[in-house]
Design a protein around this nucleic acid. Structure first.
Lengths: 146, 146
DNA sequence: TCGTCCCTTCAAGTATCTTGATAATCCGAG
DNA sequence: CTCGGATTATCAAGATACTTGAAGGGACGA
């Protein structure tokens, strides 16, 4: 029976790796179904995480060339996943905005199964435990942003 | 203050999405540093998760063609990330085994920073909370496998 | 106005994937 | 035991996608 702090933290780290692996694989499979390549999928993740971004910002986040970014945005736009809008403040810039409608229609349904499974797991937890889990996630996100 | 079960589960789901997004982006960045493409990275994840697999099994998991799998394994093998061995039971088959040495040398150091951050977050939890988190992860993994 | 920044375009090269064919092996029917 | 079908991995060739690097036009700011 693992019970000491050291044992538990080690156990959590291992399980986290395993859990993340599952998610990453699922993610990859879903992206393929919608016809999104690796960079396309990465862009969508960035846009959903950080909100609308300019091509330059996307290039900095991904390490890709500006030319490549234009191409990727072209693809995403032609599939309806993002929209391009000129920045009213600086007309050199372009703002790439994720299309919530397309995400809702095409992406979310593919994650429904995963969402249900997570819901089932959470349903067996007490309110107290849910708070613990939620705070843990919040802190992990905050730490990752730093 | 969120406190009802419904509010908490919703909050957790949102935070989970955000957390996973961070991890996926980090993953992608790390893979790029080592020179691993999307499929290469996916293969390594599969091999670390499920252990040694045959090319056919890799093809089924990923949806790629058998010819593509050969190419990907070639790349990984030339970089020392996996080894090919003939299956003694069925000599048509080949067993692709991840090289723990290469993973330890090249991959693990790149995740050190993330590991430290997670460690810092866990250090502020009580033993009781750690148990809750660990069990939650265990159940999530079990549910994902089904 | 001049220098700089931002996005786009285009041509060329590199990776990556698919297809179809090949060779080795296994397995079951006869 | 042997033959034929099925399975497995590999290879070669072609198509597709991706990325780079250079060049250009519009827009900002001093």
């Amino acid at each position: 029976m693992t019970s000491t702090r050291e044992e538990l933290t080690g156990e959590i780290q291992q399980r986290l790796i395993r859990f993340i692996a599952e998610v990453v694989l699922y993610n990859h499979a879903v992206s393929g179904k919608v016809g999104l390549g690796a960079s396309d999928s990465q862009f969508m993740t960035l846009l959903q995480t950080y909100g609308p971004l300019t091509p330059r910002q996307l290039a900095e986040h991904t390490g890709l060339t500006s030319g490549t970014v234009t191409g990727v945005v072209d693809r995403l736009e032609s599939h309806g996943f993002v929209t391009r809008r000129p920045d009213p403040r600086d007309r050199r810039k372009v703002v790439v905005t994720p299309s919530m409608e397309a995400i809702q229609d095409k992406l979310v349904p593919l994650y429904a199964e995963q969402g249900e499974r997570m819901h089932a797991v959470l349903a067996t937890r007490s309110v107290e435990e849910l708070k613990t889990i939620s705070e843990f996630l919040a802190d992990s996100i905050a730490e990752a942003d730093s």
